[in-house]
């Protein structure tokens, strides 16, 4: 045992390291979130937190479940692929509880030209108009049913309420 005769200070120092490591380990156990590292170098619970956020756009399936008349008008027209909330705005609240929120009727003067105002940058086969020369102030829905916009297409259902 002669080799360890004057090594007491080394053992004390080593002990200090062991204690420091244990303290580090315990503190780490407390401060690192529980799901950290489950899928990778991040907090796995963040993924389910994102998934739990509420939606604001209900999705066209929710609209079509009640508004079957509009859905069938739209399905046969040029706007078949335009989803309801593209024009009517985010209406998840209305879809959850129809009485809680009555969707405002969109202003066609703003809405239609947003897509159909002529622009050199739009695809050539996309129907475009010069708003002034085309209608001269007459509201779009006088001639076009927004749900099936071709002239001569079936007229708009009176109010468009749920069946």
């Amino acid at each position: 045992m002669n080799g360890f005769k004057d090594a007491g200070h080394l053992f004390r120092f080593a002990g200090l390291f062991v204690v420091a490591f244990l303290v580090f380990w315990v503190v780490r156990g407390f401060v690192v979130p529980k799901s950290f590292g489950q899928y990778g170098h991040y907090r796995a619970a963040a993924v389910s937190e994102y998934a739990a956020r509420p939606v604001k756009f209900a999705g066209h399936q929710a609209c079509e479940a009640c508004h079957t008349d509009i859905a069938s008008t739209k399905a046969g027209g040029k706007h078949a692929q335009v989803n309801c909330e593209a024009c009517h705005g985010a209406l998840a609240k209305h879809a959850e509880d129809p009485t809680s929120l009555t969707p405002p009727k969109p202003d066609t003067a703003v809405l239609c030209v947003r897509c159909h105002a002529a622009s050199a940058a739009k695809p050539k086969d996309f129907p475009q108009i010069d708003a002034v020369s085309h209608a001269n102030g007459v509201p779009c829905e006088t001639c076009h049913n927004p749900h099936s916009p071709a002239i001569g297409a079936p007229p708009a259902a009176a109010k468009g309420g749920a069946q």
Partner: peptide
């Protein structure tokens, strides 16, 4: 994750 599409896809008219 709820089976819906994204808001931008839902609102895209074309």
């Amino acid at each position: 994750t709820k089976g819906l599409t994204t808001a931008c896809c839902e609102a895209c008219p074309t």
